[in-house]
């Protein structure tokens, strides 16, 4: 009995406020004739027909949303690989770190959206430009956090790995990457939100397709309910990506959560 109550309580707590907000939006906008603030019922009505209109292969979901997300994943993936590789190299060498640090600090500080107009010069407005923009924007947080993580590796663990004659590959795999993984995940999380921003604005700037492109098209054409449906869809994409990210990072850092707790308790 108490078990049922507890489940009920947690469902109520989780869904309560979102439901209240949605209902409030629904009813306050219901009779709305304001141009910018269409009824929620109208937005949701257009949502299906805007994004999922059959056949699925030709719907906006397939034509606009999927390419956007694929570009994001491509750029993000490149940034992860390059950032971790460079970060391990820079983090492992004191001299290289000192050499690169001021330049990296500067590049990190450049707000990534300014990359869009710069790279448009070189690469036009195609997929390559967008992927490169996302990759470069995501690179810095991954790179700098990896450097921190590698630099912070416990020297005792390094000695242990050397004393037991772990080779380069094993040292990278079992010591460096695992030991730096908490920082790498932090960097990857920062990079993901920057990547989403860049995905959207590179399409808003100049594009032929994509989620950001569609939303701006709707706005310019004063298709307001469609625009709102796009805003909501973009929000949902952001939430879904962060859920996936969280699941992956939990799996990667399972040891770290317990380890940190044990350090806290012991201190």
């Amino acid at each position: 009995m108490t078990g049922v109550l507890r489940v009920l309580r947690s469902v109520l707590l989780t869904l309560g406020l979102p439901a209240v907000i949605l209902l409030a939006w629904w009813f306050t906008s219901a009779g709305s004739t304001t141009f910018y603030n269409p009824p929620l019922s109208a937005i949701l009505g257009t949502f299906r027909e805007t994004w999922f209109s059959a056949p699925l292969g030709e719907s906006r979901l397939a034509v606009d949303v999927v390419p956007s997300v694929l570009r994001l994943l491509a750029g993000y993936g490149i940034a992860l690989v390059a950032g971790i590789a460079l970060g391990v190299a820079i983090g492992s060498s004191r001299a290289l770190r000192a050499f690169a640090e001021p330049v990296l600090e500067f590049f990190r500080a450049i707000p990534p959206p300014v990359l869009v107009p710069v790279l448009m010069l070189f690469l036009g407005i195609g997929d390559t430009m967008k992927i490169v923009v996302i990759a470069i924007g995501c690179l810095w947080p991954v790179l700098l956090n990896t450097v921190e993580g590698v630099r912070g590796l416990d020297p005792v663990l390094r000695d242990t790995a050397r004393a037991y004659r772990l080779g380069l590959v094993a040292t990278l795999r079992h010591l460096v990457l695992r030991g730096a993984s908490p920082q790498i995940v932090t960097g990857a999380r920062q990079a993901l939100s920057i990547g989403i921003i860049l995905m959207v604005i590179s399409e808003m700037f100049a594009a032929k397709d994509g989620l950001g492109f569609s939303i701006v098209q709707f706005q310019r054409g004063f298709a307001i309910p469609e625009m709102w449906s796009g805003v909501i869809l973009l929000g949902v994409v952001g939430v879904l990506l962060s859920l996936v990210f969280r699941a992956v990072s939990h799996a990667v850092l399972r040891w770290y959560l317990g380890y940190r707790q044990s350090q806290h308790g012991g201190a």
Binding site: L13, T14, G16, I196, M204, M227, W228, V231, G238, V239
Partner: peptide, 23 residues
Amino acid sequence: VTASTIEFLRPVPSVALIPVAVL
């Protein structure tokens, strides 16, 4: 009460609001 709402709204990319801001 607010935990789920915060968790949902936080990852919503702020650039989604650009068209709204323009309007």
